[in-house]
C-alpha cells in the first residue's frame, strides 16, 4: 500500500480554522435547477490538509468557490449552510467585508497557472496587488515584500522576475507565482484546486514539497482538490470523497485507503493506476457521472452501483453518519457490506 502522510502535528490539535456546515449551492441552467453542492459539511484544522476527490462534475470546485463566495452569479447562488472561518460565518458578511477576507484569511490556488495569471500585468504587480490591499504597503517596502514572497516560493532571481510577464515564465514558475500570491498575506486556509494537474511530474513533486514546507512554516490549513490518489497519499491527512455534489465518505487518509466503506470510494481507489503510470485523470469508472439536473430522487449512486439495490433501497437518500470516530460514510443498505453492524446509526426518515 502507499505510504500515507502521518497525522497532523500535535501543536495543531483541535485548532479548527475552517468549518463548513450543510453548504448547498445551486445553479439555474436551461435544464432546470442544479444542485452542484448538496449539504456538504467538513472541518479543517490548523496545519491540516483535507483532500477532496471525486469525478469530474462532482462539485469540488463549486464547493471551493462557495467557500470563497465566488460562485459565478447570477447563474449560481449559495442557498444554505454556514462557512465558519476562524469562528466567523463568511456567508453572513457583507460583500465589502468578504473582500477583506479573501486573500487575507483565505486564499486560493487555481488549477491552470497559464490561465490564473493576468497576461497583461507584470507578475510583480500581481503579487504586489494582494500585499498592497491587505497590508497597505507602498513603494519600496511593497517591492521588498513582493521579492520576499517570490523568494519564499523558491523562484530564482526574484528581483529580475518581478518585471516579467506571465508568458515569459515556465508553467512551474507561474504556479509558484500563484502560490506566492496565495501565501503573501499568510492566510490561515488555502484552497488548492488541482494545483498540479497541468505540471509535469518532477515539477509537480517539487511544488507539492514546497506546499508542505509552507504549511509547516505557517500552520496553513489546506483544502486540496485533486483527481490523483497518489497525490492524496502524499499530501493529505484526511480525505472527503464527493459524488453528485455530496460527500459520500470522509475519513483519515489511512482509513480511506485501507478500509473504505462506500462502494464509490472503493471503485475510485481500485481504479488508481500503478504509481509509475502517473495519469492525469482518474481512469473511467463504469457508467457515466450523473447528470445533476436529472438526479434520481433517493440515492444518487444507486443507478451506477453493481450491488443489488431494491427499488426501496434506491429511493431513500442515505445519510452521512459517523460509523467509527472520524470515519463518515453515506450508509445505504447495499453499499456497506456489513450494513447490519451500523444499522443502529441510521434512521431513515
Amino acid at each position: 500500500m502507499l505510504a500515507h502522510r502521518p497525522a497532523v502535528g500535535v501543536s495543531a490539535v483541535d485548532a479548527t480554522v475552517l468549518e463548513v456546515r450543510n453548504l448547498t449551492t445551486e445553479f439555474t441552467t436551461k435544464w432546470g435547477t442544479v444542485r452542484a453542492v448538496d449539504d456538504v459539511s467538513y472541518s479543517l484544522k490548523r496545519g491540516e490538509t483535507l483532500g477532496i476527490v471525486g469525478e469530474s462534475g462532482s462539485g469540488k470546485s463549486v464547493t471551493a468557490l462557495s467557500i470563497m463566495r465566488l460562485v459565478p452569479s447570477p447563474a449560481g447562488r449559495i442557498v444554505g449552510g454556514e462557512v465558519r472561518l476562524n469562528g466567523r460565518d463568511l456567508l453572513a458578511l457583507s460583500e465589502g467585508e468578504m473582500t477583506g477576507v479573501r486573500g487575507r484569511e483565505i486564499a486560493m490556488i487555481l488549477q491552470d497557472p497559464m490561465q490564473a495569471l493576468n497576461p497583461v500585468l507584470k507578475i510583480g504587480d500581481q503579487v504586489a496587488e494582494t500585499i498592497a490591499i491587505h497590508q497597505g504597503l507602498r513603494g519600496k517596502a511593497l517591492l521588498e515584500k513582493v521579492i520576499e514572497a517570490l523568494r519564499h516560493v523558491r523562484i530564482p532571481a526574484p528581483e529580475a522576475r518581478v518585471k516579467d510577464y506571465p508568458h515569459q515564465l515556465s508553467g512551474g514558475m507561474r504556479q509558484r507565482v500563484v502560490g506566492a500570491i496565495g501565501i503573501a498575506s499568510q492566510p490561515s486556509v488555502i484552497i488548492a484546486d488541482e494545483p498540479t494537474t497541468s505540471l509535469d511530474v518532477t515539477i509537480q513533486a517539487a511544488y507539492l514539497r514546497l506546499l508542505r514546507q509552507l504549511q509547516e512554516e505557517y500552520g496553513l490549513g489546506i483544502v486540496f482538490i485533486t483527481h490523483d490518489f497518489g497525490i492524496v497519499a502524499k499530501m493529505c491527512h484526511r480525505v472527503a470523497v464527493m459524488y453528485a455534489g455530496r460527500i459520500v465518505e470522509m475519513a483519515d487518509v489511512g482509513t480511506i485507503f485501507d478500509s473504505p466503506l462506500h462502494e464509490y470510494t472503493k471503485a475510485l481507489i481500485n481504479s488508481v493506476p500503478p504509481l509509475e503510470a502517473d495519469l492525469e485523470r482518474l481512469p473511467q469508472l463504469d457508467g457515466q457521472p450523473p447528470l445533476l439536473h436529472d438526479l434520481p430522487p433517493g440515492d444518487a449512486f444507486a443507478p451506477r452501483s453493481t450491488l443489488a439495490f431494491t427499488p426501496e433501497d434506491a429511493s431513500v437518500r442515505p445519510e452521512l453518519v459517523e460509523v467509527e470516530p472520524g470515519h463518515w460514510v453515506q450508509l445505504s443498505r447495499p453499499s456497506v457490506a456489513d450494513f447490519d453492524r451500523y444499522a443502529h446509526l441510521v434512521s431513515y426518515g
Binding site: M68, E95, R102, I133
Partner: peptide
Amino acid sequence: LDSQYVVLARAKGVSQRG
C-alpha cells in the same frame, strides 16, 4: 470576467471596481 485570472483576482481580495 469568466476567466481564471479574474477568479484569482477576486480571490486575492481585489474589489469589484479593481
